[in-house]
């Protein structure tokens, strides 16, 4: 690990330098494996948060949301220090990826840390100056739980930048007109042409329950099942 950044009170981005990295696609993940002195091992998946920088010594970024009592996430967010070494395997997952040459507009729907692989897509689009329309809907508990918020606000303010909407489940900023709460059908079916005419490719990612709800709302809004790609992080 070459550097770490706090994203929120409970989420951190870890920068990992890997020898012989051959690049990856936005949306892919790595498996991280921890080994205790007695040989006990624990492995979990973490999405790559940014496109590969290229070069021989690739620097990868993952963003880990600390779960209360989470075996691997708590170790990575609390105990790992710059200079420590980790075992990684990847890049993995060839389905939940955005192909940069696909002209279809992209609708991104994230719950909590489910934003991580979608952020990789947003960053790839920005770095390569790709005009494909992007829209992100990110559901979080409170404004303080937004990862990458400054960067997203900056990108959204640029001409041709992605459209970004935050939905709050517990506490919303006072200016927010939406009553805080879980995802509702009209959060995804807001009457804009994003709903259907644009026939976007939809990427939905987050805790399992969130992904189930969001993809059902998208189906109910008329999106076709084969245009909805999902990644379930676990949990409820």
């Amino acid at each position: 690990m070459t550097a770490r950044r706090a994203e929120t009170a409970t989420a951190s981005t870890l920068c990992l330098r890997v020898e012989d990295w051959n690049g990856h696609l936005p949306g892919q993940h790595v498996d991280v494996r921890l080994t205790a002195p007695d040989g006990y091992q624990a492995a979990r998946s973490y999405s790559l948060a940014a496109p590969a920088a290229g070069g021989v010594d690739g620097v990868l970024e993952i963003t880990v949301q600390r779960l209360p009592d989470g075996e691997v996430s708590a170790f990575l967010t609390d105990d790992l220090v710059v200079g420590d070494r980790l075992e990684l395997r990847g890049p993995l997952g060839n389905w939940f990826v955005w192909q940069q040459d696909d002209p279809a507009p992209v609708l991104l729907v994230a719950g909590g840390a489910g934003l991580v692989p979608l952020m990789s897509m947003i960053r790839a689009r920005d770095r390569a100056h790709i005009p494909t329309p992007f829209r992100l809907i990110h559901s979080v508990r409170t404004p303080d739980d937004r990862i990458y918020a400054d960067e997203l606000e900056r990108l959204a303010a640029q001409p041709g930048g992605p459209s970004v909407t935050w939905l709050y489940t517990r506490t919303a900023p006072q200016t927010d007109k939406r009553r805080p709460g879980r995802l509702r059908p009209n959060d995804l079916n807001d009457g804009s042409n994003w709903t259907l005419d644009a026939a976007p490719t939809c990427f939905v990612c987050g805790p399992t329950g969130f992904v189930e709800e969001a993809s059902n709302h998208l189906l109910a809004a008329g999106h076709h099942a084969n245009r909805i790609r999902t990644e379930r992080f676990g949990g409820r």
Partner: peptide, 10 residues
Amino acid sequence: NVTRGFRSRR
């Protein structure tokens, strides 16, 4: 490769 600081808890 032992991960520095990681202990089995299960």
